[in-house]
Design a protein around this nucleic acid. Sequence first.
DNA 1: TTGCCAAACTAATATCATTAGTTTATGATT
DNA 2: AATCATAAACTAATGATATTAGTTTGGCAA
Lengths: 190, 190
Amino acid sequence: MAPRPGLSRDLIVKTAADLLDEADGREVTLGQIAAALGVRTPSLYNHIDGQDDLLRGLAVFAVRELGARISRAAIGRTGEDAILAIGHAYRQFAHERPRLYQASLRAPDPDHQALIDASEEILDVLRLVLKPYQLSPEDQIHAIRGLRSLMHGFVSLELAGGFGLPVDIDESYRRLLTGFIRGLQREGGA
Amino acid sequence: MAPRPGLSRDLIVKTAADLLDEADGREVTLGQIAAALGVRTPSLYNHIDGQDDLLRGLAVFAVRELGARISRAAIGRTGEDAILAIGHAYRQFAHERPRLYQASLRAPDPDHQALIDASEEILDVLRLVLKPYQLSPEDQIHAIRGLRSLMHGFVSLELAGGFGLPVDIDESYRRLLTGFIRGLQREGGA
DNA sequence: TTGCCAAACTAATATCATTAGTTTATGATT
DNA sequence: AATCATAAACTAATGATATTAGTTTGGCAA
């Protein structure tokens, strides 16, 4: 039922993701992906529906990887400890695979179900670590938005070269996170 | 000394910026810019040095516009009031011109002097509104990085469609900012 | 063994950015 | 006022890329 099982959507996306952070150019081309797979460019179209579809796939791939990492980081930790660990894992992922990290937000269609599903794992983890602060359902949503904004904004500016001055960047990030956490403690009960 | 004064680097950049947020495609092409200026594509090369140079120009243009807006917003205000006004202006700019806002961080060369100069105006404003909190020079840098991260992270996720739930987004942003400000008050003296 | 069908291929097209080389308008010079 | 030099705009050509059309082929099912 599956002749010539060389290619598949997942393999193409994974190959593209691998190329993403080694390629020198601004974009990974379908030609590069095909070459890495030992195949001609049009063959990719049997499995993906053009560039936009590839971008969607990459976004899902990236969000899954990010989710896996922060889940792992949170294991066995609670409260401030857990949030800092997640923040660290988040930033580390962005450092290790900057282009893949950026791809996580470059999906042409953010409402695509697969992407929403993948994001759900991240949200689950965040909800879990916020539990001790006993926020109301609405406060929890505000807090999650805030935490994601912090992490994304910081690493995003950092990757864009936005922090020029010779002052410890790790320390800036640590302060940003701890400041946010203290704000939670004030707000909730913990 | 300047024959046929039709085109100029500034005009090209401005035209590109205008096209940015009306174009439907993913990118603004040199052909679209040339057409909008009533000129053939290669003519642009007399004034800009290819796409990368255009991106640099767009980044500078965007940062200047952003800087002008937040400066204006801060006039006549101090402390929490000023910071909230800046945050509002920042987010409003991103809403009004989302692609131009994104271009402010897409420069191929973040160390380019013109871009650094343009960013300096933003930093000046932020330094000014943080003055009442009497932070040490180093604390001030951490605070500026934090504030920029907050604002950029939030609007960036918002633009990417990252906030799905039907909970008031304005409120999330307001809380994020006020939480940060309260952290400053704890840290500094004010 | 045969036939079907998806998967991979070749060939062709359209859109871009970019470079080379030509023409021309305009300010400067005689 | 006439001419010249030069930068600005042009046409033409090239190379890279995504995408589509149409052909070939390999592997599973009957």
